[in-house]
């Protein structure tokens, strides 16, 4: 009985959490896409500030990681492909893996580490310092003031970062191809373009947009649910990172399955 009770309680908690994420996402989407047409103000300057922090400032680390991931992919692909004398397929293996999966996923991990955790810490600190309460007493809606700019910045910038990460990954694979697989830059790029189809790139970017949405929702939700005391901010931040990674993997699984089922054959 206790076991079934605990399963029931965990299920209810899980559903309540997902409900909270949906409420937050719905509120932010309304503030971005609907409220400006109802005469309410959208904080575009805050969204631009967030976009710079989420996207532009993440470029160096995303570039570096993606370049190395591309190179690692190429090495691993070459390890198997050379057994079959098919080293020329390294370029297509890297291109498809980066655009469909590793580009969006590694970008999401970088964004979780940089931005998801920072959202939770920022909102959590504001909660502890009564700033969220102050906002409400001033008739400012925390979701439209705090979450909506982050939401817009993330759904725009995570796909942009992902596209850049795809490019850097291909570049990393190309570096290996040039050094160890008899490619030239021209032949490597040619092989990459032949391997890629628009569906691969677009599904990767669409996934990235969903990742951005989920990371924002989890980071902000953890911030808003911060308890009393500064140590709770640390817990919220850790929790935001762990839950965001889990949520991104879940979204990845579902979206990849849907894309597989709807892919052109």
């Amino acid at each position: 009985m206790a076991f079934t009770d605990s399963i029931g309680a965990a299920t209810i908690d899980g559903l309540a959490y997902v409900g909270g994420l949906a409420r937050l996402t719905g509120g932010a989407a309304k503030a971005v896409f609907i409220s400006p047409f109802q005469g309410k103000r959208f904080h575009m300057s805050r969204a631009i500030h967030q976009a710079m922090a989420v996207g532009v400032e993440a470029l160096p680390i995303t570039s570096l990681i993606s370049f190395f991931i591309g190179a690692i992919l190429a090495v691993n692909a070459a390890y198997e492909l050379r057994k079959f004398g098919a080293l020329h397929l390294v370029a297509s293996a890297v291109a498809v893996s980066m655009t469909r999966e590793l580009g969006p996923l590694m970008t999401a991990v970088v964004v979780i580490g940089r931005s998801g955790s920072s959202f939770a810490a920022e909102i959590g600190t504001m909660k502890v310092n009564e700033e969220i309460d102050a906002m409400e007493t001033m008739a400012l809606e925390p979701i439209s003031f705090l979450v909506a700019p982050k939401f817009l910045a993330m759904i725009l910038m995570v796909p942009c970062l992902t596209a850049w990460a795809d490019f850097m990954g291909v570049l990393g694979g190309g570096a290996f191809g040039l050094a160890a697989a008899s490619f030239t830059w021209g032949s490597y790029i040619q092989a990459t373009l032949e391997a890629l189809i628009a569906h691969d790139i677009l599904t990767g970017l669409l996934k990235a947009m969903f990742f951005g949405l989920v990371i924002t929702a989890v980071g902000c939700q953890e911030g808003f649910s911060t308890g009393l005391g500064s140590e709770q901010v640390g817990r919220s931040t850790t929790s935001a990172v762990v839950k965001s990674i889990f949520a991104v993997v879940m979204v990845d699984l579902v979206s990849t399955t849907i894309f597989y089922l709807t892919a052109p054959r």
């Binding site: 310092n129 009564e130 700033e131 102050a134 409400e136 007493t137 001033m138 008739a139």
Partner: peptide
Amino acid sequence: LRKGIGMSFQSGALFGSMTVGENVALP
């Protein structure tokens, strides 16, 4: 109705990312 009331919190609850002037200007 909240636009017609003011509240001063125990900790001040000023927005830490804004200057004093920006805090006062926000409402």
